[in-house]
Amino acid sequence: MTAFPQRTRVLRPVALCVALALPACSPAPAGSDINDPYEAQNRAVHEENKRLDTAVFGGPGRESREPGPFVKGLANVGSNLKAPRNVVNGILQADPEIAVTNTFRFVINSTFGLAGLFDPATALGIPRKDTDFGATLARWGVPEGAYLELPVVGPSTERDAAGRIVDLALDPVYWYLGTPGAYGAFALQSASRIESRQRFAGTYESILYGSADSYAQARLLYLQSRRYELGQEEEVFDPYEDPYAQ
């Protein structure tokens, strides 16, 4: 791993983790937007994830709805617990906006927001600005790697999967709480996924159960929105070219 400078001693263990987690950060074949050498394996995981989704959320047919106050409160607490990690990653990305925004949000929502149950920071004009170690790696020039569908978690890439592992190790909340508190924090941080699963049920289900190839749709949507989030170049269709040729 020589893709990023290791200026400080603090960074070295992190770099080591990434090096361990990315044994084969597969380079994308030229001219291809989607790099999916593990497709067969990924598709098997995708089917498992779909079964799990059906078991937990009851399968297709649900309408998008505003989550209830309980789910919303849990998701708010969880999202507040992500703020310290966002600050750390903001610093690692040399992005003061992310670091400062999340510091203010954490202070405001932990106090006036009753330990994050409510989100007064957004009302005060400081909206959520999430990031993660996968984005930090992207910022450091680490390539995206192969596409991966992870059990339970869903669509990811080699870079983002490594980022998730590192995020578990560097999250100040876990360090502060220690076990078993860290497990609780992790569960709460995951609660926002349940909230968005409810809020966007119609969209989730049209992809998962409504498309001809839900694996390919989920892969495309993940890669495109992730690249957009990371500010990377997007595919552009030229309307003056032969539509059959593109």
Binding site: A212, A216, L221, E235, F237
Partner: peptide, 19 residues
């Protein structure tokens, strides 16, 4: 938000055509 309708429909119609 970065998700391209033409690209998504290419994938979808392609899968439907295979089916």
């Amino acid at each position: 938000e970065g998700v391209n309708m033409l690209a998504a429909e290419r994938t979808e119609v392609g899968a439907m055509l295979d089916q």
